[in-house]
Design a protein around this nucleic acid. Structure first.
Lengths: 213, 213
DNA sequence: GTATAATATGACCGCCAGTCAGTAAGTGAC
DNA sequence: GTCACTTACTGACTGGCGGTCATATTATAC
């Protein structure tokens, strides 16, 4: 009875089609402007069907966020793996730049990530899904933690808690990216994203270095 | 014709009453859960009246945000003015701690601030109101910039762009506060807000100091 | 070919932000 | 006091949307 398998495959494909449609619609019109009917129309499916595959509008968004996280993680992993021979500081730079790059090439996914910790999202998706997303983002952070740890072992960095330092670094980058995402803010600070990003990274990494250096 | 004055006064009071009701309702039930009818009921006014005083639900929220910003600015100004004799680094600590303190004692206002740069808000309030909010937040940043500048002049800090450094510092604090606002994140990082905040500040300030130190 | 299960549909519901025709209260002139 | 007029307020109503469910359609099994 291979029928069941085929069924499962078709079901999965349908789900992907809906997700694809949602990606297009949400990214084109913005989550709040987009309606579930829009998604249904784009997916060539009735609205009811959407709800056979996802619990809610927010849940669809959450799955898109997971996609984005997977993408980011892949890029970070690549950056992490590719430069084992470099100094920890240089590798942190690469990781950070990968993140910056991601935020620029996939602004929609990035926006989703930044929105995740906030408000409704948390309340409107299932606990498992929520935790899944959190887990993924922790994985990204672990790459940073590992690198910091290696930097400490190599005597490059002077700090006693790599986890905390990694967290601080991560929070800092998020802070900069969010702050600078707003054109009017950039204008008022009269700085562009890249220089600000560079300066902030330099500042924090300087703080991380051994005093000797 | 003092009548007009009284009229204006009454109008202003009504407005304040609505704002007061909105503050209570929004903070109690959350912005999205709360309805305009709730606010109207609490203000003992019909829904229509609400819309005589505010353009939209979001606009009410924006005015609450302005309140919060005023409160924060007052506290920052106080902290800034009170410790002129201390070192720039110590004064940055005080400013940062004031901010941390604000985020804990007025979590609702703080949440509003963090939400401000994101999504709908920007799209759903008037351009003037939007810019007004931005201006206020820039004022807060200016206190930091001033302090950094003084630190440079005093030879405490080694950096060439106080504005950028202040921006970096500000972004960093925001990043930490947002990241650590989520209980599950704290759990996963196994750090509490305060230690993380301290560690991050220490890290950045270390980066700011003259190498000599 | 028929019984059964799996999928899909779209009219419908409840909710809510925002509107507007209508009402009430206040004001100034005489 | 009352009339004309302005200002302030009201709440029933509208349109739009997320989500549901009774019904229809299609596939499968025997």
């Amino acid at each position: 009875m291979a029928t069941n398998e085929r069924r499962a495959r078709e079901k999965a494909r349908r789900r992907q089609e809906i997700l694809q449609a949602a990606r297009e619609v949400f990214f084109e019109r913005g989550f709040h402007q987009a309606t579930v009917d829009d998604v249904a129309f784009r997916a060539e499916v009735s609205k009811g069907t959407i709800y056979l595959y996802f619990e809610s509008k927010e849940s669809i968004l959450a799955h898109l966020l997971l996609e984005g996280l997977a993408l980011l993680l892949a890029q970070l992993n690549e950056a992490y793996a590719a430069h084992q021979s470099l100094s920890a500081e240089e590798r942190l730079w690469r990781l950070a730049r990968t993140y910056l790059d991601f935020s620029q090439t996939h602004p929609n996914y990035f926006r989703l990530m930044m929105a995740f910790d906030r408000g409704r999202f948390r309340e409107q998706i299932s606990a498992e899904l929520y935790e899944q997303i959190l887990q993924q983002s922790i994985r990204a952070l672990d790459l940073v933690t590992q690198t910091v740890r290696q930097g400490i072992q190599a005597g490059e960095f002077a700090c006693d808690d790599p986890k905390m330092s990694a967290g601080a670094l991560w929070a800092t980058l998020n802070g900069v990216l969010v702050l600078m995402a707003n054109p009017l803010r950039r204008q008022m600070l009269s700085v562009e994203l890249e220089p600000m990003f560079e300066a902030t990274m330099a500042l924090v990494l300087r703080g991380l270095r051994r005093a000797a250096n």
